[in-house]
């Protein structure tokens, strides 16, 4: 509620990613979220990112909601058919999750259960459309619901996509399907953002750029080598290499990116710390937030 309202008012929003644990130990996650309460507008809860089995986004979203924290629940096409997707969305709607974002999901083979069978019953666009259909009071079979949920619907867009034409066409399909906010994969340079906005400008959307906290040179090199859709500038890697205190430098880089994106006028940022959520306050503070 707060997220949609702030975006509508044109305020810069700060979201933090909260990766659910692989297990039921949630005390650390809750305390880390509570530590930045008031500084973060909402917590984005990934749904088994990289196809690694974890506690569900619905579960962690409800957990954080029970502590009065606003969340963005991810809903993924890969693991559920249209019945399960709608059932979980109704649960989210009934239990006070105001924001949902549809994602296609990484391929099963990238994860830790690579022999599993993917579902992919609905495409991402169909899922987004389905979220809006539920809001009209009907399900995907056209049957009337006893109470319609109300969601602020979002999805993903990749400014660093190798084929920007195709990415923009997909963006337009997602917009047509009812998505209103878009979260990017990690971006490490304003140039990537500028080039994208030059092409995508004018579309009625809230763009939230993800700032990923690099933890080491090795992590940066891994992204460079294996995640072709995310570009890490070499200058950034050597800056970490030369730094006397590398972790502090990584925090500083993340903070600078947050500030740079804010200065560029994007709607907000999502800060992803991948287990280093305890560094969130330092990033926000260094970014002047």
């Amino acid at each position: 509620m707060q997220l949609e309202k702030k975006l509508a008012e044109g305020a810069f929003v700060v979201l933090a990613e909260m990766e659910p644990p692989k297990g039921v130990e949630v005390a650390g996650l809750v305390s880390q979220a509570m530590a930045v309460r008031g500084k973060v507008d909402a917590f984005v809860v990934p749904e088994m990112s990289s196809a690694v089995m974890r506690l569900s986004s619905l579960g962690v979203s409800l957990l954080l909601a029970s502590r009065g924290l606003e969340t963005v629940m991810q809903v993924c096409c890969r693991d559920r058919n249209r019945l399960a997707l709608q059932a979980d969305l109704l649960a989210a709607g009934a239990l006070g999750i105001p924001n949902v974002m549809g994602v296609a999901g990484d391929d099963i083979t990238f994860g830790d259960h690579h022999t599993a069978k993917a579902v992919d019953d609905l495409t991402l666009e169909e899922l987004l459309q389905g979220m809006n259909t539920l809001m009209t009071g009907r399900d995907l079979a056209g049957i009337e619901l006893k109470g319609a949920p109300r969601f602020f619907v979002g999805s993903t867009v990749n400014p660093g996509a190798a084929h920007l034409e195709a990415e923009l066409a997909a963006l337009d399909r997602k917009l047509a399907a009812g998505a209103r906010f878009f979260i990017t994969p990690p971006i490490f340079s304003v140039e990537v953002l500028d080039a994208f906005r030059k092409r995508a400008g004018g579309r009625p959307m809230y763009l939230l750029t993800t700032v990923l906290l690099l933890k080491s040179v090795g992590m940066a090199r891994y992204i460079q080598r294996h995640l072709g859709q995310i570009q890490v500038p070499e200058a950034l890697v050597s800056r970490i290499q030369k730094a006397p205190e590398r972790v502090r430098e990584c925090v500083q880089i993340a903070a600078e990116l947050v500030k740079a994106f804010k200065d560029r006028g994007v709607s907000g940022v999502v800060i992803s710390t991948l287990g280093w959520e305890d560094r969130l306050p330092a990033i926000l503070s260094a970014a002047g937030i």
Partner: peptide
């Protein structure tokens, strides 16, 4: 045991 679907349609 749960079947290995890597040889099936996905991927």
């Amino acid at each position: 045991t749960p079947k290995d679907w890597t040889t099936s349609r996905d991927g």
